[in-house]
Nucleic acid binder design. Structure first.
Length: 479
RNA sequence: GGCGACGUGGCCGAGUGGUUAGGCAGCGGCCUGCAAAGCCGUGUACCCGAGUUCGAUUCUCGGCGUCGCCUCCA
C-alpha cells in the first residue's frame, strides 16, 4: 500500500485516489521571467519521480503543470529589458522546457498558461464576490479571508495568530491585512485585460485555482509544489477554490523540501542560487538528477560541488558494473547462478517497492539498487556459466528498467557514459593503448606505466582485464 | 513575537524500542608485472540532561544548537 505524507493532515496516509486506478495531479510550475535554478530542478525531479512511480504502480495519471506568465516580476523584468512581456515569457517557457528535457523530466500531460484563462479568472472573482468571499475596492478585487472559516488549515496556523505578529504591508484598500488580491487594477502601460472592475490583471494565486479546476475537475487527487508554496500560495488556492465550488479542492497535498547552500535556503531573494544550465555545464544532467534522489524529498537538500562529485562517483560505480556484465563471456565451466540471480531480483523488487510505497523513499530505493550491484559483482567474480549467466543478465536488465522508468536515471549505456568525457580522439587513444600493450609484451613496464600515467593526466584511466585493456574517461574539472 | 522542522560514525544520508541501511572517503587482505576495478574483512554513530521501560539513537519532558514559514520564492 502506497503511503504519502499529506501536508493538510500532517500525517502519512494511505493513498487512495478519488477514482479507482486514476490519479489527477496538479503541480505548481514556474513564473517565467528567468532561468530555472536548482530549486526548480528539485521540485520538478521530485514530482517527476512521484508521477513515474504512480505510472509504475499502474495508475492512469493525468499530470498538469502550469506556467504563470503574468505577474509583477514579469512586468518589471520586461520593462527593464525593454521587451514585450509576451516575448519574455515565451523565451523563458522555452528555456524552462529545455532544462526539464535535459533533466529527463517527463513532459506534463497538460501545460496551461495563466493568460489563457483570464475569462475564467474573472468569472471566479465574480462568483466569489456574489458569495461574499470577495470584494471590490479601488479597482482591485480582494479575497475576504475572515469569511473562509478554514483559512489556515493547510499551513496549520490561525488567522488570529498571524495577525498578532503581522509584518505585512498596510494597504488601505484591504479590510484585513491578510486579504489577498484576486484581481489587480493596472497602471497605464502595463499589460491589462478588461473586467467588470476596469482594466486590470489577475493576482498571483487565482490562476492555479482556475486552471486546475478546468483541466482536472474538483476535487482532484494531488496538489504539489515546493514547501515555500504552502503559505500563502496553496492556502489561498484552497480558500478560493473551496469557497467558489463549495467542495474539497485537492485530497492530498505534497510539498518538497528546499535546496540549501551552506545550510541556508537557496532563494532568489538571497541571491545564492545556481541556475540549472550553469550546473549542467560542469556536470552531466544525470549526476544532478541522481543527486536529487539521494535525499528524501521532504528533507532539505544541501547543494554543493562536493556532493555532485560524490554523486558522480556513485554513478561510476553503477556504470562500472553494467560495463562488466556487458563484457562478461560465460563459458561451459563455472557456477550456475540462476537461483541467486532470481533471488537477487526478488529481493530488489520487494525492497524497492516497499521504499517507494513509504512516501517515495528514494534513498532506500537507491540502497536496494546498490545491493544488486554488489551481488552482481559478487556473482560475476564467481564466474557464472552459460546456464546461469543469461538469467543474471536478465535480472540486471529488469532491475535497471525499473530504475530507469521510475527514477529516470541510468539512461546511458556504460560505453556512452565512460566515453562521454573523452578529451582525445578514440583513434589517438587506441594507438597509445597499443603502444602500451607492446611495451608490456616486452616487459618494459616503465614505458607502459608512463603511457598510463600520461593518459591519466588527460582524464583517461586504463584498466587491464583478462580480455585486454579498456579505458574509462573521467571529466577533468579545474575548480 | 507566533508556528514548525531538524540535530546519526571522517563526509553524505535512511531507519528502528533490543538483531546489516546504502553511498563516498580510510585501513587490512585477495587479485594484478604494478595499478585500477571488483570481492572479503574493518570503524566505542545516533546533540545534552532527566523520565518511562527489563532495555532508548528510536517514546515523554526540559535544555542547547541549526534551519524554515509568518513578505516574492520550487
Amino acid at each position: 500500500m502506497l503511503k504519502v505524507f499529506n501536508t493538510i493532515t500532517n500525517t502519512k496516509e494511505d493513498f487512495i485516489p478519488l477514482a479507482e486506478k486514476k490519479v489527477r495531479m496538479y503541480v505548481c510550475g514556474v513564473t517565467v521571467y528567468d532561468y530555472c535554478h536548482i530549486g526548480h530542478a528539485r521540485s520538478s525531479g521530485v514530482f517527476d519521480v512521484i508521477r513515474r512511480y504512480l505510472l509504475y504502480k499502474g495508475y492512469d495519471v493525468t499530470f498538469v503543470k502550469n506556467y504563470t506568465d503574468i505577474d509583477d516580476k514579469i512586468i518589471k523584468r520586461s520593462a527593464e529589458a525593454e521587451i514585450d512581456w509576451r516575448e519574455l515569457t515565451a523565451k523563458f517557457i522555452a528555456e524552462h522546457d529545455a532544462d526539464m528535457d535535459a533533466l529527463n523530466i517527463l513532459h506534463p500531460d497538460l501545460t496551461p498558461k495563466a493568460t489563457d484563462y483570464i475569462k475564467q479568472m474573472i468569472e471566479m472573482c465574480q462568483n466569489l464576490i456574489e458569495k461574499g468571499f470577495a470584494y471590490e475596492s479601488g479597482g482591485d478585487v480582494y479575497y475576504r479571508v475572515a469569511e473562509f472559516k478554514e483559512y489556515g488549515k493547510l499551513s496549520h496556523r490561525k488567522l488570529e495568530d498571524m495577525m498578532a505578529g503581522a509584518r505585512i504591508e498596510v494597504n488601505d484598500n484591504k479590510e484585513n491585512p491578510y486579504d489577498f488580491v484576486l484581481w489587480k487594477a493596472s497602471k497605464p502601460g502595463e499589460p491589462s485585460w478588461e473586467s467588470p472592475w476596469g482594466s486590470g490583471r489577475p493576482g498571483w494565486h487565482i490562476e492555479c485555482s482556475v486552471m486546475s479546476e478546468d483541466l482536472l475537475g474538483l476535487p482532484f487527487d494531488i496538489h504539489g509544489g515546493g514547501k515555500d508554496l504552502v503559505f500563502p500560495h496553496h492556502e489561498n488556492e484552497i480558500a478560493q477554490s473551496e469557497a467558489a465550488c463549495g467542495c474539497m479542492f485537492s485530497k492530498y497535498w505534497i510539498h518538497n523540501g528546499f535546496v540549501n547552500i551552506n545550510q541556508e535556503k537557496m532563494s532568489k531573494s538571497l541571491g545564492n542560487f545556481f541556475t540549472i544550465r550553469d550546473v549542467l555545464k560542469e556536470f552531466d544532467a544525470e549526476i544532478v538528477r541522481y543527486f536529487l534522489m539521494t535525499t528524501h524529498y521532504r528533507s532539505a537538500l544541501d547543494f554543493s560541488q562536493d556532493h555532485l562529485l560524490e554523486a558522480e562517483q556513485s554513478l561510476n560505480r553503477i556504470y562500472t558494473m553494467l560495463d562488466e556484465i556487458n563484457r562478461f563471456q560465460a563459458g561451459k565451466k563455472g557456477l550456475d547462478v540462476s537461483e541467486d540471480a532470481k533471488k537477487m531480483f526478488d529481493a530488489f523488487k520487494e525492497k524497492f517497492d516497499a521504499a517507494m510505497d513509504d512516501d517515495f523513499n528514494t534513498p532506500i530505493a537507491l540502497a536496494a539498487m546498490f545491493e544488486v550491484i554488489r551481488e552482481t559483482n559478487r556473482l560475476l567474480s564467481s564466474k557464472p556459466n552459460k546456464i546461469g549467466f543469461p538469467v543474471l543478465q536478465e535480472a540486471v536488465k529488469e532491475v535497471f528498467e525499473i530504475i530507469n522508468n521510475v527514477l529516470g536515471i541510468i539512461k546511458y549505456t556504460p560505453v556512452q557514459w565512460f566515453k562521454a568525457n573523452l578529451s582525445i580522439t578514440e583513434e589517438e587513444l587506441n594507438k597509445k593503448i597499443q603502444a602500451r600493450a607492446e611495451a608490456k609484451r616486452e616487459k618494459d613496464f616503465e614505458k607502459a606505466d608512463s603511457i598510463r600515467q600520461e593518459l591519466k593526466e588527460q582524464g583517461v584511466e586504463l584498466l587491464d582485464t583478462v580480455d585486454g585493456t579498456i579505458f574509462r574517461a573521467v571529466k577533468i574539472r579545474n575548480f
